[in-house]
């Protein structure tokens, strides 16, 4: 039959990606789940594998360093995401209001804004390690000129995490801004013209026109940035190595240390990874639910 050949072809087209995602994504997760109930230790390859139930979960949930790393992961992801989206929105509004009709400036600045996002975390980590450096850093140099004392951005455990988060916001706010700018441009002009006629102030426009029209996109950008934030090993391990102490250690770093770097407790680390997986899925469910609810509301 004529068009049925199309449907068959389309089935063949979607199958590889689904099968790949299942084999390379889901099966390993199931394997990790299984491992989390055993006593696998990569330092003791001769040890017989034994089912030990939920012992790994009990131990790791009670571990203070794991709890701290979990807290750090959440703080880093949430603060970095909110920061980048808010700053991104501010930048997008700036571009929209003042540079929309200046294509050359807009293109130039947009290109500049995107470069940090395309730059790898390793380079970004290095750039900011240099900027934060107490001796060679630009920031401390400027602070010195202004008469302030030297700030140990990365070795003061009180502010180390915030310094890292700021780096993350610096890297991704331009990226968020461009996505949001596209949304701003697509808001029908009539809304703004009407607001002009009514005489709405900037904040009224923001509240009643821009935010409602941008809600879906804001959530999409939030989601995207949140996913990016969950992969933070590269940035933090290069900037602080998790230190000072364990002040900036995230789940990825701790579990890696636990499984490979430290005592080789791969099963216990797997339990931690499964906990992280559950937390991630739940938080994404919440965001996606919000997203769909607002989509229905549209």
């Amino acid at each position: 039959m004529a068009i049925k050949s199309r449907d068959r072809l389309l089935k063949y087209l979607v199958a590889p990606a689904i099968i790949f995602s299942f084999v390379a994504g889901v099966l390993p997760m199931l394997y990790a789940l299984r491992n989390s109930f055993y006593n696998i230790n990569v330092r003791l390859p001769m040890q017989t594998e034994r089912l030990i139930g939920i012992t790994n979960y009990k131990i790791i949930l009670g571990n203070e360093r794991f709890q701290a790393s979990l807290r750090n992961s959440i703080v880093f992801s949430l603060e970095g995401t909110i920061g980048a989206v808010l700053l991104g929105l501010a930048i997008a509004l700036f571009l929209y209001y003042f540079l929309r009709n200046k294509p050359l400036l807009l293109t130039g600045l947009s290109t500049m804004l995107l470069i940090p996002a395309l730059t790898g975390r390793i380079s970004v980590a290095y750039i900011w390690r240099l900027l934060y450096d107490p001796v060679l850093g630009l920031i401390n140099h400027v602070l010195g000129l202004l008469g302030f004392g030297t700030v140990e951005f990365l070795s003061n455990s009180n502010i180390a995490m915030q310094s890292v988060v700021f780096t993350d916001v610096w890297q991704w706010s331009g990226f968020a801004a461009l996505f949001l700018y596209a949304g701003l441009v697509s808001i029908p002009r009539e809304y703004f013209e009407e607001a002009q006629v009514i005489g709405a102030s900037f904040f009224q426009r923001l509240r009643y026109i821009i935010i409602p029209n941008l809600k879906g996109l804001l959530l999409a950008v939030f989601l995207l940035k949140f996913m990016i934030s969950l992969r933070n090993f590269d940035l933090i391990s290069v900037m602080t190595g998790g230190g000072p102490g364990t002040a900036t250690e995230t789940v990825d770093m701790y579990l890696y240390w636990l499984a490979v770097g430290g005592r080789g407790l791969l099963s216990r680390a797997s339990a931690g990874a499964i906990i992280m997986l559950v937390i991630t899925i739940v938080s994404f469910m919440i965001i996606i639910n919000l997203y769909q609810r607002q989509k229905v509301g549209e």
Partner: peptide, 18 residues
């Protein structure tokens, strides 16, 4: 397919390393 992007990297690493 999209959810694969949400997997924590450490959760991918641990089974793969074995």
């Amino acid at each position: 397919i999209l959810t694969q992007r949400m997997l924590p990297p450490i959760a991918i690493f641990l089974p793969y390393t074995l």
